[in-house]
Design a protein around this nucleic acid. Structure first.
Lengths: 280, 280
DNA sequence: CGAACTTTTGATATCACTCAAGGGACGTGG
DNA sequence: CCACGTCCCTTGAGTGATATCAAAAGTTCG
């Protein structure tokens, strides 16, 4: 089918300047409005998450609620911190999806972690003067900034909160290990399966799943930059899982049709996420 | 050249059972005896390392020396902690090289970090009950075990030491980020170049380099498991760097012939290692 | 309807893997 | 002392997975 060519690929633009706020945030505004919408209701997702790890005092809970009240909306594809800059506060995600990432000189980027509602990024790093990684939103988010002062005054004063911070950093470390294993040893399909499992368990822990399905408003290019694959190949991997009836992916919503199978493909063991108390 | 075949490849054995203590530690005993020998002399390498990060008190220094006195030798290819087990103490390396690693069900392994003299592994993780990663020696080592009790009594009581622990964990995190970028975005040669740069800077920081050369007593298979490449390919990558006169690798000793070139290939920026005060 | 972005598909190229074999270094045992 | 085994490094050849290039079709928004 020879055709008139007017569609010019400009993938390279987004590859070379992936985080400058210039891309269609308008288009993505609605993504967050699908289903659970990554918008947890009553319980602050951070409280929900931390309660699995430690016993929060009434004061801790109150503080977290105050923090939430001060959160502000941020549109999609916005830099919250850039690589190499001086940080101006840890980031608590209350709604939406963000990520940590690094860049190569040639513009290629690698996503090194996903930040979901209830996650905090760089609790300790804010005391340094140079962020080794950047943080950007993927979807529109609601976030709270925790200044170094706030952290020393509140988090470091509370037994439970500083204990939680230590555990969170261990979870981060364990997650990095899993991702390294993923990139170093697994095939494209296996990597994708593993990522889906991780996101599923983490989202479920903060009540953002419905049965075996959840909203997944990330582009294939985001996935590619996460899995260390090309964009095209990242298109073909899910297709294989779909044809095998393991997952369904439609309208930016992912449904796991065969969780045991998916878990087996990924060799996924959720224990590194420390979600035990409410894992089911 | 057709020849009588008696040499049978049994790589698979070492791939499938990589950490059970069965392999030629005899042969490797001498590796650690080359040149600087990964055997720092006067200043305890941990003291040396920590002094770059924080101001140690006399008591801190004394404690570190006492710890060193209790260190014991461990032969090559020995498990110090196994994946999934209950830890019985953080590990301080005083001589030799060890690594953290993870395994897949099919036996493939991924090295997730190198532990060099002066490094501590799992300072915080020992308070958990399940190690997400295993730790094994690569060469013969001298190590000290820090029990959870020791840690709460000494490290957590000292301002400087607990500050150092936080910084070390940040460095670990930054290093994981670099490795993810490595595996996700870089070619085989680039990955190797990056690893060499990292090891060079870290070893130099504890005085284990001579000019631009250092002892590198790891097998190509170790490197392969670090870089996410096959053993064969890991053989060809250094060759390329050698032919370009960037490095020299002989007798388990690596010499950097063209550091600027190597740094450029790797896009290496040592700032994530926090070695600034004595980087040169 | 057109612009921008994303997803999908096809065709080709290439990097890295696997299989296979030989060689060197070192230690072991007859 | 020499034959042999083991481990590691090296090389060659063929294959496969993934990247790259190119283009079209579907979405969403203006």
């Amino acid at each position: 089918m020879p055709a008139s060519s007017n569609a010019i690929s400009n993938k390279t633009i987004s590859e070379l300047r992936p985080n400058i706020v210039l891309r269609g945030s308008r288009q993505r505004e609605h993504w967050a409005a699908v289903d659970e919408r990554l918008v947890p209701t009553k319980p602050n997702p951070a409280i929900r998450k931390l309660e699995r790890l430690v016993a929060l005092s009434a004061a801790d809970r109150e503080w977290l609620e105050r923090v939430e009240a001060e959160a502000r909306p941020v549109s999609a594809r916005t830099d919250l911190m850039s690589e190499g800059s001086d940080p101006d506060g840890a980031i608590l995600i209350l709604e939406g999806i963000a990520c940590r990432h690094k860049h190569r000189a040639n513009g290629r980027r690698q996503i090194t972690a996903y930040l979901l509602p209830g996650d905090v990024s760089d609790l300790e790093a804010v005391f340094q003067d140079r962020m080794p990684q950047g943080v950007s939103t993927i979807t529109p988010c609601r976030i709270a900034r925790l200044s170094p002062r706030t952290l020393s005054e509140s988090v470091h004063q509370s037994q439970a909160l500083s204990q939680a911070a230590r555990i969170l950093s261990l979870i981060d470390e364990a997650t990095y290990g899993e991702w390294l294993l993923n990139l170093g040893c697994r095939s494209g399909v296996e990597r994708l399966a593993h990522l889906i499992c991780e996101l599923f368990h983490r989202l479920r822990a903060v009540g953002l799943t419905t049965g075996n399905s959840f909203s997944l408003p990330v582009t294939q290019l985001d996935l590619a930059h996460t899995l260390g694959l090309s964009g095209v190949h990242t298109n073909r991997s899910p297709q294989e899982l779909r044809h095998q009836r393991v997952i369904r992916l439609a309208e930016r919503r992912l449904t796991i049709l065969d969780l045991p199978r998916l878990t087996a493909i990924a060799e996924f063991d959720p224990s590194y996420l420390n979600l035990a108390p409410g894992g089911g």
